[in-house]
Simulated scan of single mutants.
Amino acid sequence: MIIRIVKMGFLPDQIDAFLDNFEQNKDKIRNFDGCSHLQLVRDIHQPTQFFTYSHWESEEHLNNYRNSTLFKGVWANTKNKFNQKPEAWSLSQV
């Protein structure tokens, strides 16, 4: 299993638009082949900082999602709202 964490910082006036986009797409992502968990969390001290936390059956499943039309559409509608460069980690459980 791959655990994927993505840290994203948003322009304050773009947070509602990001949340709307996430709400519209979260079930599609959760139902993507190989995804068993997707969660969005927000930093309690820096409210413009969000993290997605997802579980994937394998790196191949994650890469299939990252190369999909779904991801490309979601990402295009997300990256223009950033106030900093996003960071991502692919992890395995120890």
Rank of each mutant, 00 (worst) to 15 (best):
P47C: 07
T69D: 15
I15E: 04
D16S: 14
S92P: 00
D20H: 07
N80C: 09
N21G: 06
D33F: 07
Q46G: 00
K79P: 00
K85M: 10
V6M: 11
D20C: 06
A88M: 13
Y53E: 05
W75L: 06
K79N: 11
R42M: 06
S54G: 11
P47R: 12
L91G: 08
E23T: 14
P86W: 07
I29A: 06
L19I: 07
P47T: 14
Q49C: 04
N80S: 13
N83Y: 00
I5F: 03
Q14R: 14
P86D: 03
V74E: 04
E23N: 13
G73R: 11
Q14K: 15
L19Y: 03
Q84T: 11
H45P: 00
D33L: 09
N83P: 00
H55E: 15
K79I: 15
G34H: 11
Q14C: 14
H61G: 09
T48F: 11
N77L: 04
Q24K: 15
I3H: 09
L70E: 08
R42Q: 15
E23M: 04
I44M: 03
N80L: 03
P86A: 06
P47L: 12
F51H: 09
D20F: 02
S90Y: 02
D43T: 02
D20W: 00
N64D: 13
K28C: 06
E87M: 09
K79Q: 14
L38Q: 01
W89I: 11
N77E: 14
K85A: 13
N77F: 01
G34Q: 08
N31Y: 00
D33V: 10
V94F: 08
S92L: 05
F10Q: 02
